[in-house]
Computed example of a mutant assay.
Amino acid sequence: MKIKLLNTVFLLMIFTYGSIISYGQTSDPISKDSTKPTKICEPKDIRDLLRKKGKPPKPQKQTSLLILPNISSNPTNGFLMGVGGNLAVYFGPKESTRISFAGFSIAVTSKKQFLSFLKTNIYTKDNKLFLKGDLRYYHFRLPTYGLGTNSPPDSTDYDGGWIWQGADTKDTEGGYPMLYDNIRFHEVAYIKINSGFYGGIGYHLDYFWKIVDSKLKLDTLPKQITPHFVYSKVHGFNTDNYILSGLSVNFMYDSRDNLINPYKGYFANISYRINQTWLGSDQNASSLWLEFRTYIGLSKKMPRHLIA
């Protein structure tokens, strides 16, 4: 079962961008071969707009903290209200150390969800180490829609569902509401191998408990089973709670010009994770994660106009 990531609030994005843009890049200089002067729109933050005309800007601080209300609406969460923010800080000289960043949020929703997370990207002095963390606590509910195209062993496919051990997975509404609590602790420590290239190991814990499978009915005739119940029974998971605990091997390449507001560069990440019972996982399993990003500029005059 895969949890959808919480959508970033548009208002929070605007103010977050405004607070930390001072760490970003300025526009490309005018080419010496230009025959006509080109007007360049320099990036400004909220403080620039509010500053009195002619007053010099304050020198950049080593640390920047922003906390704002978090209000949004989407199909997964319904109406969401809470508090979110970010912390940007340098842990070394700005000339040789990339900016570190932490984002956090606490929110409740109209669908009786409680969502909280803290995500960190920390560079030590001279970028010798990179620490990437993801800590969450969710009290979550959402409908699921099955497990893909593969039916479990000893089952019969038919229009709309499966028959497995005499029980029916068909649901006329097509959804299977789930309620559960989830704690996530992911931490990866990278060491610098070469310019922009890092390798590291990580630990990953995902704990699900208080699982309520709303449409599971085992005391009725005929029985009504769900994809979550079938998958758990086939693969040896407890239907009420389970733990995924494992280690990962990671390689990352990052040549982006800025961690928070990149205009150019490349980002690639390979992560191979193995969950093992001797680490507390309910079952042995493995997964491979591949990620690649790049940035294509659309305008020399407005570098922020790009495709990412």
Rank of each mutant, 00 (worst) to 15 (best):
K55I: 04
P56K: 14
P57A: 13
K58C: 01
P59T: 02
P59F: 04
P59V: 03
Q60G: 11
Q60V: 05
S64C: 11
S64L: 08
L65M: 12
L66H: 05
L66V: 11
L66M: 14
L66G: 06
L68P: 02
L68K: 08
P69K: 10
N70D: 13
N70S: 15
N70P: 01
I71T: 04
I71M: 14
N74W: 09
N74H: 11
T76F: 14
N77R: 10
F79N: 12
F79E: 05
L80W: 00
G82D: 04
V83N: 00
V83H: 03
G84P: 02
G84S: 14
G84Y: 00
G84T: 02
G85K: 06
G85F: 03
A88Y: 04
V89I: 07
Y90R: 09
Y90N: 10
Y90V: 01
F91V: 01
P93N: 12
P93G: 10
P93K: 14
K94A: 12
K94S: 14
K94H: 10
S96D: 08
R98D: 03
R98S: 13
A102H: 04
F104W: 07
S105N: 13
I106R: 11
A107V: 02
V108L: 15
T109Q: 13
S110W: 05
S110Y: 08
S110G: 14
S110M: 09
S110K: 13
K111W: 05
K112H: 13
K112N: 15
Q113W: 07
L115A: 04
L115S: 04
L115G: 06
L115K: 05
L115V: 06
S116E: 00
S116L: 01
S116C: 01
S116D: 00
